[in-house]
């Protein structure tokens, strides 16, 4: 039994790690030919127009950055407020209800968020706020924030719960109020894990495809304001319709994927660094 358990563990580790390397090898295999070609520099220009052999990915890179940064900002603000209230201030019973509701949000399929937003939020913005700007970076980010919220919230909650109870009791014993305990003891100790939650949420925002696909408008133009339409790298991969597997447009998909892979690598490296910092703090 013990042998089987160990064998299972080894197989799982080898499978998952090889899978990562296989994906990387696969992406490099299709992307590397593009590195040599004269059109490589063209990938980092502003115009994507297959009919004119223009393959600029910059609008998609910027669209990804704008939507994920803004979504992470909204989600962090909401998650931090809710997690702080749950762990530091609300009575236990109410905190349990709040936690239950937010965790429930994690189970809602992403398409439902997009669907509801498409019929409620987009017309509202179109009619009352920014005429004809319903499908935009702002709308996609705002809705994406609700998708990312449970992830950041749960990680922040566990960051606060990781603060030893004895430190909280000691500060209460010295006459600290709940607010003083939160700001003097809980927040400084939970900081590295809170930052980790934000980075993880950011990675989650970057990886999401459906919300951006349905709500950002998918424009190929460079976005100038938050109320412009934009396209993310993930949406771009989903939207490219290339029949010729040897075409540059098709190979550009792999370059998009490689960019996302590199980005994810840096996010994971940052997370590792933050947790290492905490361990040695």
């Amino acid at each position: 039994m013990k042998f089987l358990f160990k064998f299972g563990l080894v197989v799982s580790v080898i499978t998952t790690s090889s899978l990562v390397f296989l994906i990387l090898a696969f992406l490099l295999y299709f992307s590397i030919p593009l590195f040599d070609s004269a059109i490589f520099v063209g990938f980092f220009t502003q115009k994507w127009d297959v009919s004119k052999s223009l393959y600029g990915l910059l609008p998609m890179i910027l669209g990804t950055i704008y939507i994920s940064v803004l979504a992470t900002f909204f989600a962090t603000a909401m998650s931090f407020s809710l997690a702080s209230l749950s762990e530091g201030f609300l009575p236990k019973k109410i905190a349990t209800v709040v936690e239950g509701i937010i965790v429930l949000l994690a189970g809602v399929p992403t398409v439902l968020y997009a669907f509801v937003a498409l019929f409620l939020l987009v017309p509202l913005i179109n009619i009352y706020f920014f005429m004809g700007k319903g499908l935009s970076i702002f709308t996609a980010s705002f809705v994406l924030a609700f998708v990312v919220l449970p992830t950041i919230y749960v990680m922040m909650l566990s960051a606060f719960r990781g603060v030893p109870k004895k430190h909280i009791k000691t500060s209460l014993c010295l006459g600290a109020t709940k607010k003083e305990v939160f700001f003097s003891i809980m927040l400084p100790q939970a900081k590295p894990a809170l930052l980790g939650a934000i980075v993880f949420g950011f990675a989650r925002s970057v990886g999401d495809t459906l919300i951006a696909l349905m709500l950002s408008g998918n424009s190929l133009h460079m976005p100038n304001t938050l109320f412009d339409s934009a396209r993310t790298l993930t949406s771009h991969i989903a939207l490219i319709n290339a029949n010729d597997y040897e075409s540059v447009a098709f190979k550009a998909i792999f370059l998009c994927a490689l960019l996302l892979f590199i980005f994810t690598f840096f996010v994971v490296a940052t997370l590792k660094y933050l947790y290492k910092e905490k361990r040695y703090a």
Binding site: T170, L172, G175
Partner: peptide, 13 residues
């Protein structure tokens, strides 16, 4: 009212 009590009546564990 507890924080002000605990500042006056201090417990040393």
């Amino acid at each position: 009212e507890l924080p002000s009590l605990r500042k006056k009546v201090l417990y040393v564990a």
